[in-house]
Design a protein around this nucleic acid. Sequence first.
DNA 1: AATTCAGTTTATAATTATTCTAAACTGTAA
DNA 2: TTACAGTTTAGAATAATTATAAACTGAATT
Lengths: 137, 137
Amino acid sequence: MQQKKEIINKLRSSNLRPTKQRILIAKKLFDRKKTFHFTAETLNQAVNKKGDIKISLATIYNTVEAFKKAGHIREILTNNSKSYYDTNIKSHHHFYDSESKKLTDIDYQDVILDKIPNPPKGKKIKDLEVVISLQNK
Amino acid sequence: MQQKKEIINKLRSSNLRPTKQRILIAKKLFDRKKTFHFTAETLNQAVNKKGDIKISLATIYNTVEAFKKAGHIREILTNNSKSYYDTNIKSHHHFYDSESKKLTDIDYQDVILDKIPNPPKGKKIKDLEVVISLQNK
DNA sequence: AATTCAGTTTATAATTATTCTAAACTGTAA
DNA sequence: TTACAGTTTAGAATAATTATAAACTGAATT
Ligand SMILES: [Mn+2]
Ligand SMILES: [Mn+2]
Ligand SMILES: [Zn+2]
Ligand SMILES: [Zn+2]
């Protein structure tokens, strides 16, 4: 459980002014036990559900982009037309259930990559993602 | 090199009438040595470059969807906002260069997955994709 | 060969997700 | 306090895709 002070420090340390909007969004994102997989839409719903203050959708997008740039969240690959984000910034993989449009974490050690190819010359690997799409049995 | 007759058979066998638009698109897609990675936009350019007939963008989208449903092409995961497709329907993986927005095939045997997790109960694995994002060294 | 009609194509409108704009607001350093 | 860069916001703009509905056409039937 992250205290307000910790959240403010997190924001400050990435050169983001701790506005009331960012603090509320950060609480929703980081003040939880489990990883949170979300889209701009679901975050907007989560944040604007309970009273508190009203945060505009533009701010949701701005903040998601700022948090992503700061490395506090990461974007995940899916087949969906919406962008998906993850509060778990450690290297790990995902199941994507196209029925429910929900992501589930796969522990890093549950996928063993024994061999990965060399990147083309002049390029280096930025990220490696494994996405396992699911369908009903 | 696929003959027109082969292409017509391919279309017929998936219950797609061999219209002149579909035949032209299929030629562009399948009558080539190497795998083709494309978006609706790049396919539209390729198809409408040379004289021949003019094919509307709506037909590009319709045909891509029809070919995908028929299993003649597959969609590939990327971070790009456009959908990417692949004429290589065998299981394989990709480099994605976010600078050039280009995909490159990774041979199936160049990624060795020694362990993959069990899907959640009631679900089975539809597909497993490895995407390696590249950045300049 | 002419007829028929479901399947297909097309121009265009609609939708959806996201980004842009520019005016109002606010956190904080002086 | 004041000043001002950074931030928020409503609304407009953009971009990719999908929907609509009228015209067209491949191919089966006569
Ligand atoms: Mn995506
Ligand atoms: Mn995509
Ligand atoms: Zn995750
Ligand atoms: Zn490929």
